[in-house]
Design a protein around this nucleic acid. Structure first.
Lengths: 190, 190, 190, 190
DNA sequence: TATGAATGAGGATTCATTCAT
DNA sequence: AATGAATGAATCCTCATTCAT
């Protein structure tokens, strides 16, 4: 029961943030949308901030699982890299609402220790995944900085896909990143 | 007088968003911090959203002028590219508060037409600057996508400099981007 | 519970309008007077205008029930007419506050669609009641205009009873209207 | 100069009350509409309530002059009566805005001593005019009550003309009152 | 005479939270 | 486990008023 209710509320939170913006996503609207009463949030998350943190955790878990699942089928280092990149641009990451939640999340990081913690965890996982995949492809001293650049590019392109209607498509984003990866490998080859 | 007051209020807005987060930056706190009364906001910006829009416009103007000023001294295409990149990582862009305002701004874009407009303008200027500088360096069909990738990387690295204490420094960020630029040019040279 | 709270708030609204005038009847004063918190108004009426509309509806219902109750005992057409007239001058209609609410209500009709609707309903009911009672007493072509004149006189005299201290009393008002009715019947008799 | 400014502001007050309702007619809107600054009101009327009182006084003066002017051409008592009645339904009394101001005025009488004074003056003038005209037509003991009834009917019909779109027209109102007058005279003749 | 900058109190409204049921 | 009534603080905004120019 608890898990069902929590899932319902997280789902409704994402939907409300999508539809009316982070600022207007009040507890009463969220709970009404979930078909539940307003008191329920206190019951399961103790707090509004508890609900928001849980929501962000949920999104991070979804992304993590997507990455893990795509990595399963990767055989070569290059395939591993592309798996990581692709997982960030899967359909799940552009579902209505998901985008706004991530953006709101970033905006809250500087003033919320809880969310800052989540942010750090997420960033480290990404960095670690990328470095692991890059190690066989690049000289050791280039691995870390290339991983950072790649992670940054993923984030930057993702924002553009999300915010700029008629801008970059996920497909184009992936191709831009492939070009980055390839040129880095080529240049550092000999 | 009008310009002085507006500047005071924009300054105070940035400071408050920095100190207490976007959500807690209320009109009364902002105006008190500016040493003015709360009614003054309505007087000069008609609205809270008017003040926020003006604040973001201000930050964009500062960035634009920084870019323009750095471009003045650039002689070669490569220098132009670096000028653009550098201007995004100048000290002004990491002054306390500036970071949070940009992040909050992005979070509001999906639900605020006004801010969406500003966002589009800013993005186009960046893209256009980069393409202009890249044209002499790359085959025509590579210019647009490389500019997009570079812009995305700038944004992504900027977020990391801003959000992750002890992560990437602006200096490292610039070096990562130089590496990206160089490899793209090298690979596409012959 | 809901009905009790609504009644409390409507009662308090009437009292506040009476004591401090329509302009000064704020939500916080009204709710405090009802012994409740200010948020309660939103809870039950969603709006201040919701509360005002409900208050006016309440007064109209009271008047309607008074009329209906007096009509129960009326046997002849003439008695019916007097019953309608009397109900408009019953003690309930001059209870402290009731007068001011009606006046404020009229003042808001031109700019409030909701109240305009209520006004129309009330006027039609009065007109219909009067015509029904006048039909056996007057030639058909005189019924409508006489009803209108009578309704207007009721309203005009009611205002004078309400606004002019030391002016007309309800008793005198009723006698003036009786005289109007009698003369109209007499003149149109043969 | 003073008279010009005062007239401008009174005119603007009536227009604003008409367009946005009494509640929304703020000093800044009124003065802007008059093409003047907001401070001007304090200068010429010391107060907002001063402006409102002056506005109501103005409307009363206009009505009084209309009555006086129509009475000039009246020769018989009956003509005098009709002149008084007609003056209340002249075009000036239904000019946009005038109606709302009178209604708002009535609503304020119970809580404003100033406006209550004006109200009393206006009512007495009307009563006195009517009694003077009725004296030659009715037995002495009927004059006062008939005047009161007539005044009330004028007011009631005027409200209906004003508030109920598609209800009574001024022409019909006058005819209803003529019928009242005639029947009263006929019945009391012998 | 006239302006309009500046104030700050007061308005309606929204909302997270609490709690009895 | 779940409700939703009730609170009251906080928010934005409006506005009459004051006053230096």
């Amino acid at each position: 029961m608890e898990e069902i209710r929590k899932a319902q509320l997280i789902e409704a939170t994402i939907a409300m943030i999508h539809e009316e913006g982070f600022t207007n996503a009040s507890i009463s609207k969220i709970s009404k949308r979930a078909g539940l009463s307003s008191g329920i949030v206190a019951h399961y998350f103790s707090d509004k901030s508890g609900l928001l943190t849980a929501t962000q955790q949920h999104l991070m878990r979804v992304l993590g699982e997507e990455t893990k699942s795509q990595l399963l089928h990767a055989r070569t280092p290059m395939e591993r890299l592309l798996a990581i990149v692709n997982s960030n641009f899967s359909d799940d990451q552009f579902k209505p609402g998901v985008v706004n939640v991530w953006l709101a999340f970033w905006a809250l990081v500087p003033t919320s220790p809880d969310l800052a913690r989540l942010h750090r965890i997420n960033e480290r996982r990404m960095q670690s995944n990328l470095q692991h995949a890059l190690k066989p492809l690049l000289p050791a001293e280039k691995v870390a900085s290339t991983a950072t650049g790649l992670a940054a590019m993923v984030e930057g392109l993702w924002i553009r896909c999300a915010l700029t209607k008629g801008g970059v498509t996920p497909k184009q984003a992936i191709s831009i990143m492939e070009s980055y990866i390839n040129s880095q490998i080529l240049v550092n080859q000999d």
